[in-house]
Design a protein around this nucleic acid. Sequence first.
DNA 1: TCGCCTCGTGTAAACGTTTACAAGATGCAG
DNA 2: CTGCATCTTGTAAACGTTTACACGAGGCGA
Lengths: 336, 336
Amino acid sequence: MTRATIHDVARRAGVSVATVSRALRGHANVAPATRKRIRKIAAELDYAAHPQASRLASGRTMTVGLVAPLFGLWYAGQVVAGADEILAAAGYDLLVHSVDTPDNRARFFSTTGALRGRVDGLLLVDLFAAPEHVGALHEAGTPVVTIGERIEGFSSLTIDNAAAARAATHHIIELGHQRIGLIDGDPEAGDESPVPLHRTAGFQAALADAGLVDDAALHAGGMFSVEGGAHAVEQLLTEQEPPTAVFCMSDEMAMGAIGRARELGCDVPGDLSVVGFDGHDLAHAFGLTTMSQPVRGMGKRATETLIAAIDGRLDAPRHERADVELVVRKSSSPPR
Amino acid sequence: MTRATIHDVARRAGVSVATVSRALRGHANVAPATRKRIRKIAAELDYAAHPQASRLASGRTMTVGLVAPLFGLWYAGQVVAGADEILAAAGYDLLVHSVDTPDNRARFFSTTGALRGRVDGLLLVDLFAAPEHVGALHEAGTPVVTIGERIEGFSSLTIDNAAAARAATHHIIELGHQRIGLIDGDPEAGDESPVPLHRTAGFQAALADAGLVDDAALHAGGMFSVEGGAHAVEQLLTEQEPPTAVFCMSDEMAMGAIGRARELGCDVPGDLSVVGFDGHDLAHAFGLTTMSQPVRGMGKRATETLIAAIDGRLDAPRHERADVELVVRKSSSPPR
DNA sequence: TCGCCTCGTGTAAACGTTTACAAGATGCAG
DNA sequence: CTGCATCTTGTAAACGTTTACACGAGGCGA
């Protein structure tokens, strides 16, 4: 079955293709009767404008690109779910693109990349751009909203990572812990990703507030994965003087850590208190104390901002901060 | 910065646009020297074909659509991750589309929907099509591969749900349980989704094998969500004669059930054994016994099949079954 | 030397819209 | 009745590619 074109509709309605286009796209200056007739015929013929032709002529793709590292992680999935909700309602398609290696990232940012010409706007999730890439992105002229990380000159939806990490750590200290570990993402990544750095800074600030020392031996990399968290906690527990509590930069790492700790015969929270970060769906079932952020809502809100930018309703970048909340559960308690 | 067109490249190279197109797309019959020169100039001008123009002329979108119910669920996220991996390597974009309500679904299947014209192929995840929709989908002529569910006439990547559920239930019975509950998805959904029906049938077959009765009062709907699983187990535990074990159709429901059961003072596995289904990343950390399926791998494999179909390398639908495996952990044990 | 095949390239017609501009029709004020 | 807005519609030029077909040049066997 070859699809009907706008010409078929025009012929059948006895008008020109221009009128059909105007009628169907809801433009002004079409006689009500004509519009109605055209609508009816279009429905009969099951006509829908050929997307590519329409996009070529109008220059709008009605598609938004979402770029995130490491698909399959809970965080990215939530953002996708939130974005999809808003985009579907607004008639946009959602293109997802994963960048999980520095290589990938460089390719994405190169001018010929960045989904150039394929999207009307970009949602950048936890994606940090090196200074040399920021310029190219601006030149491309595509509206951008970042989530999690921030990129100079673009709208953003973030949380106060330092304050959140500080509050989570403060909770641990308040319980009476003195020897506190940190499960980071990839400590080798260096300045590639500011978010972990901010969280580390918050962690350290809380320790300093309490006059506690920050022992570098108690920092371990968990790569933001369940397995990585398990590996990291194992490393910490085999220290000669292991921590009595640990702050994890993601709930997935925290849950991995709890699982492994228990396998190693370490009682949680008896021998080790664990505090996570994210507000994962399963945190409640796991009894995990966590610094919860409204990820799905952030995805929705960021998408609304992006659509506003695409529609030209935004004159300046909009920066918003979501509120986080410490949810105390059974994985944290005073030390023995 | 307005982007370079193929005409700019042609002019600069002193050839026609046709030659540029052929050279850049790797077609035959272009003199090596010419091709090299054109490549160089294209790189200098940072030229890349305008996607919409290219798609309009060639009829290929180099985009694959992935349709799944309920984004934010672990299963869908894994499939996306697997698909993305293959698609990125093959140069395709990935468009995701969520259908979570019957309404949504109907709209998707209507001929004007189905991402018509926007994708070269479709990956349908856990999506069941009513008979009246199947025809429309075939008429559209778009290659389709289904994952999880099966749709008449299209390639599929599934597991043997009945056998898997039967094996999982058999494991429970072997431990010595006699009163076994079932946490289903949405029992009201009826025939809308065959997968839960098959799993229910497998569950019942195992009971029958052992001469046990299937008590309808021990079936509860968990909506495939963490919270739903929690709610369902609460319902089961307040039965006058509660089960000593429960089989859940997804790990998320199982973990939700375990969390709630423990909150209610019910020991798992002491008072209640719980067996899940999926092989969730967190199942290990949770100590959850589960029927594990290689979801990410299934996503990858299905995508390979889809690409083969798009390339016309498939003369008949290809049906593949992935192997599942029971992974026994601490959430299941003999009854007290 | 002739004819034919191959190779490299150009010409121009799609692909199916959107939209600036022109033009005809209609209504109303003067 | 005239002139001028206002509406409605049509004409035609983009939008930037891909590709069928034509064409000329060169090589080669007879």
